[in-house]
Design a protein around this nucleic acid. Sequence first.
DNA 1: CGAGGAGTTGAAAGCCTTCAAGCGCCGTGG
DNA 2: CCACGGCGCTTGAAGGCTTTCAACTCCTCG
Lengths: 261, 261
Amino acid sequence: MTKATTTHDQPPARVAAQVSALLQDCNDCPIRHRAVCARCEADELQHLEEIKYYRSFEAGQTVVWSGDRMDFVASVVTGIATLTQTMEDGRRQMVGLLLPSDFVGRPGRPTAAYDVTATTDLVMCCFRKKPFEDMMLRTPHIGQRLLEMTLDELDAAREWMLLLGRKTAREKIASLITIIARRNASLNQASMGDSLIFELPLTREAMSEYLGLTLETVSRQISALRRDGVIVVEGKRRVTIPDLDRLIEETGDDTDGGFLI
Amino acid sequence: MTKATTTHDQPPARVAAQVSALLQDCNDCPIRHRAVCARCEADELQHLEEIKYYRSFEAGQTVVWSGDRMDFVASVVTGIATLTQTMEDGRRQMVGLLLPSDFVGRPGRPTAAYDVTATTDLVMCCFRKKPFEDMMLRTPHIGQRLLEMTLDELDAAREWMLLLGRKTAREKIASLITIIARRNASLNQASMGDSLIFELPLTREAMSEYLGLTLETVSRQISALRRDGVIVVEGKRRVTIPDLDRLIEETGDDTDGGFLI
DNA sequence: CGAGGAGTTGAAAGCCTTCAAGCGCCGTGG
DNA sequence: CCACGGCGCTTGAAGGCTTTCAACTCCTCG
């Protein structure tokens, strides 16, 4: 561990502990203005502080299993989590990709409907469910924000359905890489145009579960995009996008309609 | 037109006109207790009455095109509508199937995000958008109910994603028929066990857009399920399910986990 | 009666999956 | 210290499921 300039080089558990130690105060929270609490006033925030607690997970850990009791709802603070459904014979489909500020759990439902897994080191801001539900009734700001976020998720799910139902394997891969690139740009406030180098936060297998493909097909299509110069890959995970428009052409989406980021 | 016992035998436009004529008063509304207004009190309902109006569409008509201005939000009162996305080259994927009581449109968004089409004769209860948005701010009951409905839709979308990403053509068809059967049972309050005869409300093409298949594959798989005795088909649309458990086995879903209906 | 829409079915092609083998990296334990 | 084993990933070859292209039926409507 020669260079310790970024948190990336530190052991995951330590980083998570640091993050949660840093985050006792909602005012310092990195997702303060995007999460379910975004619209809360100072007094409402104080109420939330009383029922919140942080939990950390290492990459690969399961947060909850589908069907398990779930006594909390939560926001992703840092890291990435996934929601996955599994069929009896083991076929798996990812149905949610949760980034910082995204919300986990459903008020009013006692059990988890999906497997929730940390795909990177993960810190979540959890609220005990019952107090949270009570607070939702008294605090319209929370319900309003949650509605907004849920509508956004529904839009994303519908975009995803188009991908799953109608796109080719190549288009699926191009779409996923574009999504990750955009997300990265938005998190880093990058000026969109440079920052097109990033680390894929998903294994080939996780990508295949996202895209409704096998991991072999994912691997082959990534290789194909690399061969065709659409992307540049260093090692297994580091991706550079020399020409974003070229990549977007490969997604099959409208070239113009890009109102997102 | 010898037997006119049910509305099915009447010209669509007339039925729609009848329905909307019957429905000036929210208290007589068939979706009063399931739609976005479900939790409203008498005074709130009165407010809604002032900003509502009915619109009728014949089977096949387009309600709005993706990208068009949309000055209203609405509830489906009777009939079925679909939300569909289209790619540049014409590939289409249905992303929403709207039944009576389902909500159309997004408060706060000026344009339609999807093509909305009536697949059967359709009556919608429309609210002018601006007044509706204003009312949402003053009336938590509406926002609360809308959140609940949106969360349900998100769950449905995620189930659908599993279907699109991981199920075989045969499983997709069995799943769709099961969904329609359940819906029918729930609308007719049937005692679940008999009423397993119904009309498919979708063309083969609409089914293919729902399932991410071609219409030929839909046709072939329906024929295969018929050959195997899983379903009985009279004419092109009328389906009988002799053994629902058998059909459910064909969906690939958990046999037990059926908490729906 | 002809035209057109909805649906069915056959044959061939194609895309993705399945099955297999192999590479490179990393942590463990002899 | 180094061999071993596992994991993540890549690549090849064969097979299969769905699509594509095409022909044909049935029914409705003008």
